[in-house]
Design a protein around this nucleic acid. Structure first.
Length: 897
RNA sequence: GGGAGCAUAGCUCAGUUGGUUAGAGCACCUGCUUUACACGCAGGGGGUCACAGGUUCGAGUCCUGUUGUUCCCACCA
């Protein structure tokens, strides 16, 4: 044990200052190698892989939440004797990281294209080296017990190897394919996105009604749409669109086959304005007759539905936008950015009399989840993962309980998504990421996909091959995280031992991005689920319930909070009062409360240490245990049992709350106060037995609390005499090993009730602290009270106590208090107002009788008696007895007043 | 359009499979140099558990509906 932590009892300051302690303690843990987990056949494994934060990211409260939960679980399991591995690492975060470096290049007046791919990647790696360790250092400040020796990065050699293997494997199985499909393009990021990376946001837009002339109608035989505009008999179809610029790529107009208004037009030819291209009118079920004009312009290259329609009718796909959303395709609008083109096209159509109506229209528009730019759906050659077979396996696993979701309701969310997931677009037109291991042959045009970089085309043997320029979606590599980090595709002992991992802890916001993809990847590659349980948590919001965001400036820096209140306070704030899957608001005031709690523990420990003359952490024999000892031990037992139960169901907030309540109310407010008379007594044996109980309870609560508040518990532990090593490797308390005396505990409540009742009465009657009246206790169970004489005196401010089975002969000038077990007589002379006493007693009688009536009602109800479980009936019987004596006591007190 | 959550004290939230008198923190009121702690101690006020039905011996808890609110998914041009 490092000596410098033990300050000696004399030197313990009144206030705990986490700032001094935390970094030194963390270093001590690191030096001791306590976070390192190894393959250990003698122990059961427990493993959590961290949701890897972005390598260039900054720690925010969301991370703090996520990582605190993981650390609590890991520390708990470690103390329970599991070989607990919390495997840390970071994510290369393709778009985000590349964007940051590109921004830096811009400020230097250059660009990635000017630099070239190789030089650019060097820059990103340099950036990663510089900033990648920052977030790791920040996570350490939280007290995270990660096995840093196993830290991974999604683009390190091993992960890259795993990515390569999975890609080739899926390609060989036909589950990865290259194809021309409608994808979402972010013009700003200039890359394809997956569906999951598009946010649909309601926006006010317009619905423009355009007229397309029917070729040859009205006796006009012109190829030019404008010639029809003013021709008297010319016929038109009117289409409504929210993106008029896409009309440049129209290849048909569709109507519903059942729509009589238009049946005569089906098969006719239209002249597409501005381009004067001829397009057909087709009939397709897809068209909703009720919506818009009932005529839909079909742009197969720029709309997912139109794409499908186009396929059905073999329509040409006419691409009219570049990857940066500039018009292309050989019209006079070429070169115009999409929204400029929109304006120009509308103006031109209007001038030609072909724009006939503009409506306000609210609709959902896709935005890039990274940069918020409006995305452009367009047809493009990309790589896809075929979802159907993977989804089927995943649904089978999750729906049959193969992976447990906490809370369970997310299974439904998962199912909904999996059931409707379209193929996953995995190629990105970026440079930072895992480059797609596909080579194109210049000669035969075929694709070579290979585990090793090929030197020749696998089809024709040509050496003229070129690797695909694109990289993979970042989530492709994170999807492999639970096994790639354990060494897969090598058959490592770690993989064998720790896979499947135990719990995955993450926010529900990345269920689709990450959790779902890990599930199908694990099932597909490992043939086994990647984790047994997923614990979902919510978002941390600000005091007003808003999302924390840069633009609002309402973000809270966890490091500042740690600096001010300590990591333990932040952790406890986050853990308590939150249940799985729910969002929570962050209140700085709660951190203060938890800081106070840490200080409470500190001072309780100080109290114990300052009084300590023994170093025995075992309990004295039962014969030496006093009533209050049995009471606190029983409470400790029950608390530990409750904590363990809640750990089992991952209700960490409830577990933490039970400990808070036990420590503050049970241990500090009651037990320590109750024990003070004994500690001050001359009787050495009495004093020592009491010290041993104090020390026993203190060590237990410290251990029980350690997963939640690792720093202060460790710090105090280091002050205790005769303890070995560090607290974080101690055995977690087991309820069964803590003795329990429920009957004694219940009887001791007579003493606590008396103390509380006297205190309340004193407050009501404004009896000053200095005034220490004597007390006469009239009771049928005097032995329950004689055990607590000294305690009642000290805690209720009483000078002398007489315990008797009979009432005093003269009760004038006495305040009489009735409890369930006794009548308490306090000679308070002139302080006593008889009329007030009578009124109060009458009120109490009325209240008690009302309760009694309820209890009697139940007990006389045959249905209740026959159907309610015995324990519930017994509770009611006890309650009946208690209320009956209470009422007797109150009535006899009243009759004497 | 589909799905999910939430509605409990002035505020923020707990309340595990239905079972005494519904809890905590903060805020509020009263008193306290009680030899661990004022980051404290003791006492106190404050809730028709959104509303309406239903199931049950018993409902904050389960069911149905209503209202309000939040979120997720979705290709109505």
């Amino acid at each position: 044990m490092p000596q410098d932590f033990n300050l000696g009892a004399d030197a313990l300051p009144k206030q705990y200052s986490p700032k001094d302690a935390e970094s030194r303690i963390y270093q001590m843990w690191l030096d001791g190698g306590y976070f390192h987990a190894r393959v250990n056949p003698d122990k059961k494994p427990f493993c959590i892989v961290i949701p890897p934060p972005n390598v260039t990211g900054q720690l925010h409260l969301g991370h703090a939440f996520d990582e605190t939960l993981q650390d609590v679980l890991t520390r708990f399991k470690r103390m329970q004797g599991f070989e607990a591995l919390w495997l840390p690492g970071t994510d290369h975060a393709g778009i985000a990281t590349q964007a940051k470096v590109e921004e830096q290049l811009r400020s230097e007046g250059t660009s990635r294209h000017e630099l070239g791919r190789e030089k650019f990647l060097e820059r990103v790696w340099a950036w990663k080296e510089k900033y990648g360790s920052k977030i790791v250092e920040q996570i350490k400040k939280l007290g995270a017990s990660c096995d840093w020796e196993r830290e991974r990065f999604t683009m390190d050699e091993g992960c890259s190897h795993a990515v390569r293997e999975v890609f080739v494997n899926l390609y060989e199985k036909g589950l990865i394919y290259k194809g021309s499909r409608i994808i979402n393009l972010c013009p700003k990021c200039a890359t394809a996105l997956s569906d999951a990376e598009v946010d649909h946001i309601e926006e006010d837009g317009h619905f423009w009604h355009l007229r397309y002339p029917v070729y040859g109608s009205g006796g006009v035989s012109s190829d030019n749409a404008t010639d029809y505009a003013n021709a008297p008999g010319a016929e038109f179809v009117t289409v409504a669109t929210t993106r008029p610029e896409t009309m440049l790529g129209d290849s048909a107009v569709a109507v519903n086959p059942e729509d009589e208004r238009y049946t005569h037009l089906v098969g006719k030819t239209l002249v597409l304005p501005l381009t004067n291209r001829k397009i057909p009118v087709i009939a397709d079920e897809y068209v909703d007759r009720e919506f818009g004009t009932g005529c839909v312009k079909i742009t197969p290259a720029h709309d997912p539905n139109d794409f499908e329609v186009g396929k059905r009718h073999s329509l040409p796909e006419i691409l009219i936008l570049t990857p940066t959303a500039v018009v292309t395709g050989g019209t006079r609008y070429d070169g115009l950015p999409r929204f400029d083109a929109r304006k120009q096209i509308l103006a031109d159509l209007e001038a030609q009399g072909l724009l006939i109506k503009t409506e306000e229209h609210r609709h959902a528009v896709g935005h890039c989840s990274r940069c918020n730019e409006t995305v452009e759906p367009m047809v493009s050659e990309q790589w896809f993962v075929k979802m159907e077979p993977l989804a089927a396996k995943s649904l089978d696993c999750v729906d049959n309980g193969g992976i447990k979701f906490v809370p369970e309701r997310f299974v439904k969310t998962f199912d909904n998504w999996m059931n409707s997931a379209r193929d996953w677009c995995i190629s990105r037109q970026l440079w930072w990421g895992h480059r797609i291991p596909a080579w194109y042959c210049e000669k035969c045009g075929k694709i070579t996909v290979s585990r090793e970089d090929p030197t020749e085309c696998s089809h024709c043997g040509s050496h003229e091959i070129k690797q695909d320029e694109d990289v993979l979606d970042t989530w492709f590599s994170s999807a492999l995280w639970p096994f790639s980090t354990l060494g897969w595709p090598e058959k490592t002992p770690e993989l064998e031992y720790f896979y499947p991992t135990s719990v995955l802890v993450t926010g529900y916001d990345i269920l689709f991005f990450w959790v779902a993809r890990m599930i199908f990847s694990g099932l597909e590659q490992m043939g086994e689920r990647p984790f047994e349980t997923v614990l979902f948590h919510g978002l941390i919001r600000d005091e007003q319930g808003r999302k924390m965001s840069k633009s609002l400036g309402n973000g809270v820096d966890p490091l500042e909070v740690i600096d001010e209140y300590g990591a333990d306070a932040l952790r406890f704030n986050i853990i308590t009062g939150n249940s799985p899957g729910n969002d929570m608001r962050y209140f700085p005031a709660r951190c203060e409360a938890m800081r106070n709690f840490a200080n409470k523990i500190w001072n309780a420990s100080r109290f114990v240490l300052l009084n300590l003359t023994v170093s025995d952490v075992t309990l004295p024999p039962e014969s030496e245990l006093r009533a209050e000892d049995k009471w606190i031990l029983t409470k400790l037992h029950d608390t530990i049992a409750e904590v363990l139960t809640n750990f089992d169901v991952l209700e960490l907030g409830i577990a933490a709350n039970s400990l808070y309540d036990f420590i503050w109310t049970g241990f500090c407010d009651w037990y320590i106060e109750l024990v003070k008379p004994r500690l001050m007594s001359e009787d050495a044996a009495e004093k020592q037995s009491c010290e041993r109980v104090l020390l026993y309870v203190l060590t237990h609560l410290l251990k029980a609390l350690h997963p939640f508040m690792p720093f202060i518990t460790e710090y105090v532990w280091q002050q205790l005499p005769a303890v070995d090593g560090v607290i974080m490797t101690q055995e977690y308390p087991e309820a069964d090993k803590i003795p329990r005396f429920p009957e004694d505990a219940r009887r001791f409540d007579a003493v606590r009730d008396a103390i509380s009742a006297i205190r309340t009465r004193r407050a009501e009657m404004n009896v000053p602290q200095k005034m220490q009246p004597s007390l006469l206790i009239e009771t049928n169970s005097p032995e329950d009270f004689t055990a607590g004489i000294a305690q009642i005196k000290k805690l209720a401010g009483i000078s002398e106590i007489t315990v008797s089975s009979t009432a005093p002969s003269e009760t004038a000038g006495y305040a009489v208090i009735a409890t369930a077990a006794a009548k308490l007589y306090l000679p308070l002379a002139e302080l006593v107002d008889l009329a007030e006493e009578r009124a109060r007693l009458s009120r109490e009688i009325a209240a008690a009788e009302k309760n009694l009536a309820g209890v009697e009602g139940k007990l006389s109800n045959e249905q209740f008696m026959s159907k309610a479980p015995d324990s519930v009936v017994q509770k009611e019987r006890d309650r009946l007895a208690e209320l009956t004596t209470l009422i007797e006591n109150l009535k006899s007190a009243l009759s004497r007043t």
